[in-house]
Write a protein that binds this DNA or RNA. Structure first.
Lengths: 344, 344
DNA sequence: CTCCGTTGTTAAATCGGATTAGCAAGTTGC
DNA sequence: GCAACTTGCTAATCCGATTTAACAACGGAG
C-alpha cells in the first residue's frame, strides 16, 4: 500500500555499514560485537529515515510474527463481552503484539477454516474462546499448538484455561443475602442449566448454584425453590409472574443473570412489589443495564476484561504453557437491590 | 509454533517438478504454460501433503497480506457495536481476508502507534472507525494509504466514509408518530447534542433532530419542546421526571437513544403513566434492551452489521477508493411503544 | 536441412530482514 | 618474532513463496 518503505538496506547505506552490521545494531544484540561508533551511526540513520522494521519479512526468518489469533464462537460480538477483547488487546499491545479477531458462530467447519487462516499467517499462538463458560473440544488443527482456552474447559486438551470463578461467585451471592438477614423465602430464578440449544454442558449455572446452596446451608438458610428457565428477560418475567400468581411471597430472588433480573423487576413492578422493600434481588454478570435499573442491581461481575488480559499474559509468558485452570474472581458490585427481609 | 509446515518445495519434490512449476500450478495462472499432467500431479501432491501456502512468505513478494487493520477509538468494546466487527469480519472472511482489531481509546499517540504496528505488518488497508458518528482527523500515518472511514467523516481526507443515514432516520421517527395520529404534545429528549466531553461535533443528534422537525412540520405537527441532556438512562429518567413534575402532559416522546428511552420508561412508570396508552415513545439505536423492555420499544436501528460489512466491501473492491459518503439506512423496528394519542 | 516459433519447464533473482561463517587488523603471550 | 586471540565487520545463506529470464525439445515452414 503506497510509497516504498525505508528498508534496513537504506539505513545501512546511509550509515556506511553493511546490512549485517545494521541488523545487529538495530536489534541491539550484545553477542555480536559492534563498536559504539557504528551502532550510533546506524541508530542515527534509522531515526533520520524513520525506519521501521518490516515485521512480515522478519518473521519469515525468526518464525515469530508478534501476532496472536483469537477464535471464538460468538464472544466478539456478544454485547457484554467486548471487554474480553479489550483486555486481550491491551495486554497484547503492551508487549508489541497484535490480535487477529475471528468468530466462527459455532460452526465447526468455519472454525477449522478460520484456524487455518490464522496458521497460514503464522500466528504465534491462539486464544480459543467461548461465549458461555462450558466444556469444548477445540478443532484438531489446534492440537500441539500454543493455545489458551478462554471461558471454557477442554479436558484432555493440553492447554491452560481461564475462567470466571463461578463457584465462589455463587457463595458470595449467598453471603450477601445472609449478611442482609435473609434466611427464608429465597428463590433462585434461572437454575442450574443455561441457555437453550447448547450442545455441551454449561458450567456457570451449576457452579453458581452449588456455591449458593453450600453457603446458604452453612448459614442456616435454605432455598425455597429453584426455577429452571432460560437466561433471558422474557423468561425471567414469565417465571417470576407465575411464581407470584401461584401465591408465593418470596423475600429474595437470586437471578442467574442480569437479563433474568430485568424480567424479575418487570414482574415485581407489575405486581406492585418494590425492590428491595418487598423483595431483594441479587444477580450475576453485571451487564450494562445492571447499574441503570431502578433500583440499581447488586450483582456478581463477570470479569471480562481480566479474563482477556490474563489469557494473553499467559500466552506471552516465556516457556511452555501448563494445563492449569485459572479462576478469576467475580467481584460483588454492591448496589441497591438487597435490603433487609420484609416482615410478615 | 510446533512442527514444520509443508512447504511448496515439499510439494514440488513429491510431484517431481521444480518449485517454479509447483508455484504456477498452485496459483492457477494461465499466462504460464503448464501441462495438464504436471498440474494434476502438483495439485494431487499438495492435497496429499495437506499443503497450505505461507501467507507471510508470499506477501513478502506480492506485497499483499490479505489482512486489514481496524482502528477505532472504542467501538470494539462498546456494548452495542460489536456487530460492526462482526459485519466487517464476515465480509473479510468471504474474501479470504483477516482483521487486525485495535482500539486506541481516544488517545492520539496510542492511535499513531497502533497504525504503525499495523503498517509494520503490511496490512493492505485500514478501517478507521469511531464510536459516535462524528467528524475526525485521522492520524497522519494514514494519509496516502488505502483507508475507509467508518461511522465518521473527515473533510479534506481523501477516503470514503460509511455512516448511518441519521437524517432519514429522524424523518422516519416523525413519520411513525404522524402515522399513529400524533400532531401535538410531542417532546424530544436528548436533543441535538450528544455525549459529554466529545471534542468534535457529533453528527447523529443534529441530523436526527433535523429530519424529525422537517417531517413533523410538513405533516402539520409540531414539537412542543426539545430537552437537551446526555444520552444515557439517568439523564432520561431525570429529564422526563422533571418534565412531568413541571405539569406537562406529553403525548409522545422522541428519545434520542434507547438508553434515554429506558430512563423515560422508568420516569413514566413512577408517575403512573403507561406506554403507549398515555404516552407513545419512539427511539433510536435498537440496542439489546429495546426488544425486552415492556412494552417493547419501537426504534430506528443503527445498522452496525451493515456498516462494518460495507466498509470492508469497499476496501476489498478493485481500483482506487473514491471519497464518497455512503449512507446506510436505519430500518424502523416497529414494536409496541407507539399508540394512538391519548385523549383529553 | 536449417530457421523459427511453440510449448513445457526450470534456474536464478527477489522480497526484507536474521544468522552463520569467516575474514582482516590489532593484541597478547611466550 | 610468530602463533593464538580479540575485536569489528561483512559476504553469503536462509526463510517460503513469486516472478523473470532463459533453455531444451518439438513441429512446421521454406
Amino acid at each position: 500500500m503506497s510509497e516504498r518503505r525505508v528498508t534496513m538496506a537504506d539505513v545501512a547505506r546511509k550509515a556506511g555499514v553493511s546490512p549485517t552490521t545494521a541488523s545487529f545494531a538495530l536489534s541491539g544484540r550484545t553477542d555480536m560485537r559492534i563498536s559504539d561508533a557504528s551502532r550510533e551511526r546506524v541508530l542515527e540513520a534509522a531515526r533520520e529515515l524513520g525506519y521501521r522494521p518490516n515485521v512480515t519479512a522478519r518473521s519469515l526468518r525468526t518464525k515469530s510474527t508478534q501476532t496472536i489469533g483469537f477464535v471464538s464462537d460468538r464472544i466478539t460480538t456478544t454485547p457484554f463481552a467486548g471487554e474480553v477483547i479489550r483486555g486481550a488487546m491491551e495486554a497484547a499491545r503492551e508487549r508489541d503484539n497484535l490480535l487477529f479477531i475471528t468468530e466462527a458462530g459455532g460452526d465447526r467447519d468455519a472454525e477449522s477454516s478460520l484456524v487455518h487462516a490464522l496458521l497460514d499467517r503464522q500466528v504465534d499462538a491462539v486464544i480459543y474462546a467461548s461465549m458461555f463458560t462450558r466444556y469444548v473440544t477445540p478443532p484438531k488443527e489446534l492440537f500441539g499448538r500454543r493455545v489458551v482456552l478462554l471461558n471454557c474447559l477442554a479436558p484432555g486438551f493440553d492447554a491452560p484455561s481461564v475462567v470466571p470463578d463461578e463457584l465462589e461467585a455463587g457463595r458470595d451471592a449467598a453471603r450477601a443475602l445472609l449478611a442482609a438477614g435473609h434466611t427464608e423465602g429465597i428463590w433462585a430464578i434461572g437454575g442450574h442449566q443455561a441457555v437453550p440449544a447448547t450442545p455441551e454442558g454449561i458450567i456457570a449455572g451449576n457452579e453458581r448454584m452449588r456455591g449458593l446452596e453450600e453457603v446458604l446451608r452453612e448459614g442456616g438458610a435454605r432455598l425455597d425453590g429453584v426455577i429452571e428457565c432460560d437466561w433471558n428477560t422474557p423468561d425471567g418475567h414469565r417465571e417470576v409472574s407465575a411464581l407470584l400468581a401461584a401465591g408465593h411471597r418470596p423475600r429474595a430472588l437470586v437471578c442467574l443473570t442480569d437479563r433474568v433480573s430485568l424480567g424479575a423487576y418487570q414482574a415485581l413492578g407489575e405486581a406492585g412489589l418494590s425492590v428491595p422493600g418487598d423483595v431483594s434481588v441479587v444477580s450475576f454478570d453485571d451487564q450494562d443495564i445492571a447499574s441503570v435499573l431502578r433500583p440499581a442491581l447488586t450483582t456478581l461481575k463477570l470479569p471480562h476484561y481480566l479474563l482477556g488480559r490474563l489469557a494473553v499474559e499467559l500466552i506471552l509468558r516465556k516457556g511452555p504453557l501448563e494445563a492449569v485452570v485459572h479462576r478469576v474472581p467475580m467481584p460483588l458490585r454492591e448496589r441497591a437491590s438487597i435490603g433487609a427481609p420484609a416482615q410478615g
